[in-house]
Protein backbone atom coordinates (compact mmCIF):
# COMPACT_ATOMS: atom_id res chain seq x y z
CA UNK A 1 0.00 0.00 0.00
CA UNK A 2 2.75 2.40 1.09
CA UNK A 3 4.85 1.49 -1.95
CA UNK A 4 1.86 2.02 -4.22
CA UNK A 5 1.26 5.48 -2.82
CA UNK A 6 4.93 6.35 -3.11
CA UNK A 7 4.89 5.23 -6.74
CA UNK A 8 1.70 7.21 -7.45
CA UNK A 9 3.27 10.41 -6.10
CA UNK A 10 6.52 9.74 -7.88
CA UNK A 11 4.60 9.40 -11.17
CA UNK A 12 2.77 12.67 -10.58
CA UNK A 13 6.00 14.59 -10.11
CA UNK A 14 7.62 12.88 -13.07
CA UNK A 15 4.61 13.75 -15.23
CA UNK A 16 3.87 10.07 -15.89
CA UNK A 17 0.28 8.85 -16.07
CA UNK A 18 -1.26 12.05 -17.41
CA UNK A 19 -2.35 10.61 -20.74
CA UNK A 20 -5.51 11.94 -22.41
CA UNK A 21 -7.38 11.72 -25.69
CA UNK A 22 -8.72 8.73 -27.55
CA UNK A 23 -6.70 5.50 -27.57
CA UNK A 24 -5.39 4.16 -30.88
CA UNK A 25 -8.02 2.65 -33.11
CA UNK A 26 -7.42 -0.65 -34.89
CA UNK A 27 -10.96 -1.21 -36.16
CA UNK A 28 -12.41 -0.45 -39.57
CA UNK A 29 -15.51 1.28 -38.16
CA UNK A 30 -13.73 3.28 -35.45
CA UNK A 31 -12.71 6.27 -37.55
CA UNK A 32 -16.39 7.26 -37.99
CA UNK A 33 -16.85 7.21 -34.21
CA UNK A 34 -13.65 9.13 -33.62
CA UNK A 35 -14.48 11.80 -36.15
CA UNK A 36 -17.91 12.28 -34.55
CA UNK A 37 -16.30 12.63 -31.12
CA UNK A 38 -13.78 15.07 -32.61
CA UNK A 39 -16.39 17.17 -34.41
CA UNK A 40 -18.53 17.34 -31.28
CA UNK A 41 -15.63 18.52 -29.18
CA UNK A 42 -14.76 21.29 -31.65
CA UNK A 43 -18.43 22.35 -31.58
CA UNK A 44 -18.50 22.23 -27.77
CA UNK A 45 -15.26 24.19 -27.50
CA UNK A 46 -16.56 26.81 -29.93
CA UNK A 47 -19.81 27.30 -27.97
CA UNK A 48 -18.04 27.27 -24.62
CA UNK A 49 -15.37 29.75 -25.63
CA UNK A 50 -18.00 31.98 -27.25
CA UNK A 51 -20.16 31.95 -24.13
CA UNK A 52 -17.06 32.38 -21.97
CA UNK A 53 -15.84 35.48 -23.80
CA UNK A 54 -19.34 36.96 -23.66
CA UNK A 55 -19.63 36.18 -19.92
CA UNK A 56 -16.25 37.67 -19.01
CA UNK A 57 -17.00 40.75 -21.13
CA UNK A 58 -20.32 41.22 -19.30
CA UNK A 59 -18.76 40.73 -15.89
CA UNK A 60 -16.20 43.45 -16.57
CA UNK A 61 -18.24 45.88 -18.66
CA UNK A 62 -21.40 45.71 -16.58
CA UNK A 63 -19.91 45.54 -13.10
CA UNK A 64 -21.43 47.80 -10.45
CA UNK A 65 -19.49 51.04 -10.19
CA UNK A 66 -20.25 54.70 -9.51
CA UNK A 67 -21.99 56.33 -12.41
CA UNK A 68 -23.04 53.07 -14.04
CA UNK A 69 -26.73 52.17 -14.14
CA UNK A 70 -28.45 49.01 -15.30
CA UNK A 71 -30.43 49.28 -18.51
CA UNK A 72 -33.87 48.04 -17.50
CA UNK A 73 -35.77 48.66 -20.73
CA UNK A 74 -37.35 45.47 -22.15
CA UNK A 75 -35.17 43.85 -24.78
CA UNK A 76 -35.64 41.31 -27.52
CA UNK A 77 -32.38 40.32 -29.14
CA UNK A 78 -32.43 38.39 -32.39
CA UNK A 79 -28.81 37.12 -32.52
CA UNK A 80 -29.34 34.49 -29.79
CA UNK A 81 -32.40 33.25 -31.66
CA UNK A 82 -30.39 32.67 -34.84
CA UNK A 83 -27.65 31.09 -32.78
CA UNK A 84 -30.10 28.66 -31.24
CA UNK A 85 -31.59 27.79 -34.61
CA UNK A 86 -28.04 27.19 -35.85
CA UNK A 87 -27.38 24.84 -32.93
CA UNK A 88 -30.58 22.92 -33.66
CA UNK A 89 -29.64 22.48 -37.33
CA UNK A 90 -26.10 21.42 -36.45
CA UNK A 91 -27.30 18.85 -33.94
CA UNK A 92 -29.85 17.50 -36.40
CA UNK A 93 -27.08 17.08 -38.99
CA UNK A 94 -24.85 15.22 -36.53
CA UNK A 95 -27.76 12.96 -35.69
CA UNK A 96 -28.83 12.15 -39.22
CA UNK A 97 -25.53 12.15 -41.10
CA UNK A 98 -23.06 10.94 -38.45
CA UNK A 99 -24.70 8.97 -35.68
CA UNK A 100 -27.60 7.14 -37.39
CA UNK A 101 -25.48 5.66 -40.23
CA UNK A 102 -22.77 4.32 -37.88
CA UNK A 103 -25.31 2.70 -35.62
CA UNK A 104 -27.31 1.26 -38.52
CA UNK A 105 -24.16 -0.23 -40.03
CA UNK A 106 -23.11 -1.81 -36.74
CA UNK A 107 -26.56 -3.14 -35.90
CA UNK A 108 -27.93 -4.31 -39.24
CA UNK A 109 -25.09 -4.63 -41.75
CA UNK A 110 -23.52 -7.81 -40.41
CA UNK A 111 -20.73 -9.46 -42.40
CA UNK A 112 -21.31 -12.86 -43.96
CA UNK A 113 -20.94 -15.55 -41.28
CA UNK A 114 -19.14 -17.92 -43.63
CA UNK A 115 -16.29 -15.51 -44.24
CA UNK A 116 -16.08 -14.27 -40.66
CA UNK A 117 -14.69 -15.62 -37.45
CA UNK A 118 -17.67 -16.36 -35.24
CA UNK A 119 -17.05 -16.68 -31.49
CA UNK A 120 -19.21 -16.84 -28.41
CA UNK A 121 -18.09 -14.81 -25.45
CA UNK A 122 -19.63 -15.60 -22.11
CA UNK A 123 -18.76 -13.26 -19.29
CA UNK A 124 -18.71 -14.32 -15.66
CA UNK A 125 -17.43 -12.92 -12.36
CA UNK A 126 -14.60 -12.08 -13.21
CA UNK A 127 -13.44 -13.57 -16.48
CA UNK A 128 -14.17 -13.72 -20.18
CA UNK A 129 -14.83 -17.18 -21.63
CA UNK A 130 -14.18 -17.25 -25.33
CA UNK A 131 -15.71 -20.15 -27.21
CA UNK A 132 -14.43 -20.86 -30.74
CA UNK A 133 -16.46 -23.28 -32.88
CA UNK A 134 -13.29 -24.94 -34.20
CA UNK A 135 -12.61 -26.31 -37.66
CA UNK A 136 -16.22 -27.40 -38.38
CA UNK A 137 -17.49 -23.89 -37.76
CA UNK A 138 -20.28 -25.26 -35.56
CA UNK A 139 -20.68 -24.57 -31.86
CA UNK A 140 -21.17 -27.68 -29.77
CA UNK A 141 -24.13 -27.93 -27.41
CA UNK A 142 -23.76 -26.34 -24.02
CA UNK A 143 -25.59 -27.19 -20.83
CA UNK A 144 -25.38 -25.30 -17.59
CA UNK A 145 -25.39 -28.58 -15.64
CA UNK A 146 -21.97 -29.35 -17.09
CA UNK A 147 -20.34 -26.13 -15.93
CA UNK A 148 -17.42 -26.74 -13.62
CA UNK A 149 -13.90 -25.46 -13.02
CA UNK A 150 -12.50 -27.04 -16.19
CA UNK A 151 -15.55 -26.46 -18.37
CA UNK A 152 -16.54 -22.82 -17.87
CA UNK A 153 -19.21 -22.68 -20.58
CA UNK A 154 -20.67 -26.15 -19.92
CA UNK A 155 -19.66 -27.55 -23.29
CA UNK A 156 -21.03 -31.05 -23.96
CA UNK A 157 -18.01 -32.84 -25.40
CA UNK A 158 -20.24 -35.83 -26.33
CA UNK A 159 -21.82 -33.72 -29.03
CA UNK A 160 -20.03 -34.28 -32.37
CA UNK A 161 -20.07 -30.54 -33.08
CA UNK A 162 -18.29 -29.93 -29.78
CA UNK A 163 -15.34 -32.22 -30.45
CA UNK A 164 -13.18 -29.53 -32.00
CA UNK A 165 -14.51 -26.54 -30.05
CA UNK A 166 -11.90 -24.44 -28.30
CA UNK A 167 -12.64 -22.56 -25.10
CA UNK A 168 -10.08 -20.08 -23.89
CA UNK A 169 -10.26 -17.98 -20.77
CA UNK A 170 -9.39 -14.29 -21.07
CA UNK A 171 -7.41 -14.83 -24.27
CA UNK A 172 -9.32 -13.44 -27.22
CA UNK A 173 -7.30 -14.12 -30.35
CA UNK A 174 -8.51 -12.85 -33.69
CA UNK A 175 -6.93 -12.73 -37.14
CA UNK A 176 -6.30 -9.27 -38.54
CA UNK A 177 -8.37 -8.08 -41.50
CA UNK A 178 -11.14 -10.66 -41.05
CA UNK A 179 -14.58 -9.71 -39.75
CA UNK A 180 -15.29 -11.07 -36.28
CA UNK A 181 -18.81 -11.79 -35.11
CA UNK A 182 -19.20 -12.07 -31.35
CA UNK A 183 -22.24 -13.67 -29.77
CA UNK A 184 -22.18 -12.07 -26.35
CA UNK A 185 -23.75 -13.48 -23.20
CA UNK A 186 -23.19 -13.69 -19.46
CA UNK A 187 -23.57 -16.38 -16.83
CA UNK A 188 -24.24 -14.47 -13.64
CA UNK A 189 -24.51 -10.68 -13.69
CA UNK A 190 -24.34 -7.90 -16.25
CA UNK A 191 -20.86 -7.23 -17.59
CA UNK A 192 -19.70 -4.68 -20.15
CA UNK A 193 -17.63 -6.10 -23.02
CA UNK A 194 -15.31 -3.27 -24.00
CA UNK A 195 -12.45 -3.24 -26.49
CA UNK A 196 -11.17 0.34 -26.12
CA UNK A 197 -8.76 0.06 -29.05
CA UNK A 198 -11.42 -1.38 -31.38
CA UNK A 199 -14.26 0.97 -30.39
CA UNK A 200 -16.43 -1.98 -29.36
CA UNK A 201 -18.66 -1.88 -26.33
CA UNK A 202 -21.71 -3.90 -25.46
CA UNK A 203 -23.36 -5.05 -22.26
CA UNK A 204 -23.28 -8.78 -21.65
CA UNK A 205 -26.61 -9.57 -20.04
CA UNK A 206 -27.52 -12.93 -18.54
CA UNK A 207 -30.45 -14.60 -20.25
CA UNK A 208 -29.77 -12.85 -23.53
CA UNK A 209 -27.31 -13.28 -26.38
CA UNK A 210 -26.40 -10.29 -28.51
CA UNK A 211 -24.53 -10.46 -31.79
CA UNK A 212 -21.99 -7.77 -32.56
CA UNK A 213 -19.23 -7.46 -35.09
CA UNK A 214 -16.02 -5.63 -35.87
CA UNK A 215 -13.03 -5.92 -38.13
CA UNK A 216 -9.42 -5.12 -37.28
CA UNK A 217 -6.80 -3.53 -39.48
CA UNK A 218 -3.67 -3.81 -37.33
CA UNK A 219 -2.02 -6.53 -35.30
CA UNK A 220 -1.02 -6.07 -31.71
CA UNK A 221 -1.76 -7.03 -28.13
CA UNK A 222 -4.60 -5.17 -26.49
CA UNK A 223 -7.07 -5.63 -23.68
CA UNK A 224 -10.68 -6.44 -22.99
CA UNK A 225 -12.09 -4.22 -20.26
CA UNK A 226 -15.25 -4.69 -18.22
CA UNK A 227 -17.36 -1.55 -18.49
CA UNK A 228 -20.22 -2.45 -16.15
CA UNK A 229 -19.98 -2.86 -12.37
CA UNK A 230 -20.12 -6.64 -11.87
CA UNK A 231 -18.97 -7.13 -8.28
CA UNK A 232 -15.89 -6.64 -6.13
CA UNK A 233 -13.56 -7.99 -8.80
CA UNK A 234 -14.88 -5.68 -11.52
CA UNK A 235 -11.63 -3.73 -11.62
CA UNK A 236 -9.51 -6.78 -12.38
CA UNK A 237 -11.78 -8.35 -14.99
CA UNK A 238 -9.18 -7.77 -17.63
CA UNK A 239 -8.97 -9.94 -20.74
CA UNK A 240 -6.38 -10.02 -23.48
CA UNK A 241 -7.31 -9.12 -26.99
CA UNK A 242 -4.62 -10.32 -29.35
CA UNK A 243 -4.86 -9.39 -32.98
CA UNK A 244 -2.64 -11.80 -34.91
CA UNK A 245 -1.80 -12.31 -38.53
CA UNK A 246 -3.88 -15.03 -40.20
CA UNK A 247 -0.87 -17.34 -40.11
CA UNK A 248 -0.20 -16.82 -36.40
CA UNK A 249 -3.88 -17.29 -35.70
CA UNK A 250 -4.02 -20.57 -37.65
CA UNK A 251 -0.96 -21.82 -35.78
CA UNK A 252 -2.57 -20.97 -32.49
CA UNK A 253 -5.72 -22.85 -33.50
CA UNK A 254 -3.63 -25.88 -34.51
CA UNK A 255 -1.86 -25.87 -31.16
CA UNK A 256 -5.14 -25.66 -29.30
CA UNK A 257 -6.55 -28.54 -31.35
CA UNK A 258 -3.49 -30.59 -30.58
CA UNK A 259 -3.90 -29.90 -26.90
CA UNK A 260 -7.51 -31.04 -27.16
CA UNK A 261 -6.68 -34.42 -28.74
CA UNK A 262 -3.82 -35.02 -26.32
CA UNK A 263 -6.08 -34.29 -23.42
CA UNK A 264 -8.47 -37.09 -24.37
Amino acid sequence: MKEKLAKAWHDVFEGVGFDYGLPIDISTHGSAIDSLIGTLHYFMALLFIGWGIYLVYCLIKFRERPGHKADISPKNYSIPKYLEIGIVIFEACLLVFFSYPVWAKLKTDFPDRASSLVVRITAEQFAWNIHYPGRDGKFGKTNIDLIDGTNPVGLDREDPDAKDDIVSINQFNVPVGKPVIVELGAKDVIHGFFLPTARVKHDAIPGMVFPLWFETKETGEFQIACAQLCGVGHYRMVGYFNVKTQEEFDNWLLEEEKALTEGE
Binding site: G15, V16, F18, P23, F194, A225, L229, V238
Partner: peptide
Amino acid sequence: KGVSRRMYDQTVYTHGAATQS
Protein backbone atom coordinates in the same frame (compact mmCIF):
# COMPACT_ATOMS: atom_id res chain seq x y z
CA LYS B 1 -8.86 7.01 -22.85
CA GLY B 2 -11.56 4.48 -21.98
CA VAL B 3 -11.16 4.09 -18.20
CA SER B 4 -14.30 2.39 -16.88
CA ARG B 5 -16.20 3.80 -13.95
CA ARG B 6 -16.34 2.11 -10.54
CA MET B 7 -12.78 0.80 -10.58
CA TYR B 8 -11.01 -0.08 -7.37
CA ASP B 9 -7.61 0.03 -9.11
CA GLN B 10 -7.46 1.13 -12.71
CA THR B 11 -3.76 0.39 -13.16
CA VAL B 12 -4.70 -3.21 -13.94
CA TYR B 13 -5.36 -1.92 -17.45
CA THR B 14 -2.74 -0.33 -19.68
CA HIS B 15 -5.01 2.65 -20.47
CA GLY B 16 -5.74 2.91 -16.74
CA ALA B 17 -2.06 2.96 -15.80
CA ALA B 18 -1.49 5.65 -18.44
CA THR B 19 -4.00 7.95 -16.73
CA GLN B 20 -3.45 6.98 -13.09
CA SER B 21 -1.81 10.29 -12.11
